[in-house]
Design a protein around this nucleic acid. Structure first.
Lengths: 194, 194
DNA sequence: ATCCTTCAATGAACTATGTTAAGGCGCCAT
DNA sequence: ATGGCGCCTTAACATAGTTCATTGAAGGAT
C-alpha cells in the first residue's frame, strides 16, 4: 500500500524494512475527487499530503475573488499549506485536487513521535524543506527579474509534464499573468521558432 | 562577545549557560568593511553569518550585468547563500556588506557536531528555516499578484528601518522595478495621501 | 444529434512599467 | 570654492501586460 512513498524516501535516506513497516502505521490513504479541497481557509492545515496519483494545486484567493496559484504537486511530491502547518495558525491558502487521485496523509500531531521512533526521517524532511527553500528562492528571482515569455519558457522546460496536464489559465495564474496574455506569449514564441 | 546571538537564540529555545558557553566555541567574530563580500560566486558559501552590527545584501548578478537584490539582513538576522550552503555547490548569489559592521560566522563543517552537542539548536535552526519558507512564500505571492505600488507600501510597512538605511536603487532592485519607476511610485503615493 | 459549459485564441483600448536622456542636489577630494 | 561623482527626480516615449468583448473548438449531459 505504501510502496511508492517508501521508495521515494529511500532515494534520500536509508530506511530499514522494520522502519518502513513502522512508518506505515503513521500514514493514511485518502482517495480524492476532482476539485476536492485538502486545505481550506480558515481551517488549519493539520497534515501533509504525499501525492500517489493525481495532481494538486496550492493557491491564494484574494479579496477581489481572484485565485493566485502558488504551487502544483504531482506524483511523488509532498504538499500542504506549510505556513499553517508549521505555525498551527488558520490557513490562508487552499490546496485542491485538480484530478481524481490518491494521497497519503501524514498528520501533524503524529510527526514528532514518528521522528523519535524513526530518526532517519528527520533527515528526509530536512532535505525536503531545504529543497523548498532553494526552489522558492529561484522562483522569487524569476518573478522579479524576468519577463513573462521567459518565465513561461522556464516553466515548460522545468515541468513539461504539467504543461500538458493542467489547464492553461492555471499555468497563467502560476506565472502571474492573465490567461489572455499567456495565449499571446505562446503565439509569439511559436512565431519566433520559425 | 556573543551576548547578542545568545539572547536572540533564547527568544526561541531554552539554552543553559553551559550550552551557551559551548556554543561560543563554534563561533567566530568577523569585522566587515563597506562593500566587502561574504559570499562570492563561484566559491561555495561555507558558513552562515549572524549580523551583530551593519546591513547585508543577497543578490544575483545576471548575464547582462544587472544585479537583482533578493534579500537584506540587519542586526539579529542570519544570512548566507542557502542554496550553496545546503548543497555545497558553487554559489550563484553574492552576499555583500552595505555598511561597515560585524558578523558572527558559523562554519558549515562544524554544524553537525554542534547540533550533536547542543540539541536545542536543532530546534532553533529548524524554526529559522521554517520562517524562511513562510516569508518566501509570501514574497512569491506578492511578486506575482500585486502592483509595484503595493509591493512598495508593504515593504515600507514591514521593514521601516530598511527604508531609511539602504539606497533607493537597491530597494527598487528588491521590489523588481527600476529606480526611476520607484521614484514615480513614491511621488504617486505621496500625491494620494493629500 | 443538440445544447450547454469550459477553455483557448484574438483584437482593440487601456494601464503599468521600462528606457533613455537630462537636470539637480549633496558629498567629498582637491 | 570648485569640480566631479553618485544618487534621486522628472519627462517623453516605448514596451509589457490587462481588460473586455467576441469567436470557435472540444467534451459532457440530455
Amino acid at each position: 500500500m505504501f510502496e511508492t512513498i517508501i521508495e521515494k524516501i529511500r532515494e534520500h535516506v536509508t530506511l530499514s524494512d522494520d522502519d518502513a513497516a513502522l512508518l506505515s502505521t503513521y500514514l493514511e490513504v485518502r482517495k480524492l475527487r476532482k476539485n476536492q479541497l485538502l486545505v481550506e481557509p480558515p481551517y488549519p492545515a493539520n497534515a501533509e499530503y504525499f501525492v500517489v496519483k493525481g495532481c494538486l494545486r496550492h493557491y491564494f484567493l484574494d479579496e477581489t475573488g481572484v485565485e493566485h496559484t502558488t504551487a502544483f504537486a504531482m506524483e511523488g511530491w509532498w504538499m500542504t499549506d506549510l505556513q499553517s502547518f508549521f505555525t498551527g495558525a488558520p490557513s490562508k491558502y487552499h490546496v485542491e485536487a485538480l484530478e481524481e487521485g490518491e494521497v497519503i496523509k501524514l498528520r501533524r500531531e503524529l510527526k514528532d513521535e514518528m521522528f523519535n521512533k524513526i530518526p532517519a526521517l528527520n533527515i528526509y524532511f530536512r532535505i525536503l524543506y531545504q529543497n523548498a527553500i532553494i526552489s522558492q528562492n529561484e522562483r522569487i528571482l524569476n518573478a522579479l527579474s524576468t519577463t513573462a515569455d521567459e518565465r513561461y519558457l522556464r516553466f515548460v522546460k522545468k515541468y513539461p509534464a504539467l504543461e500538458n496536464r493542467v489547464p492553461q489559465y492555471l499555468i497563467a495564474s502560476y506565472l502571474g499573468i492573465t490567461p489572455e496574455f499567456l495565449s499571446k506569449v505562446k503565439t509569439r514564441i511559436a512565431a519566433k521558432k520559425s
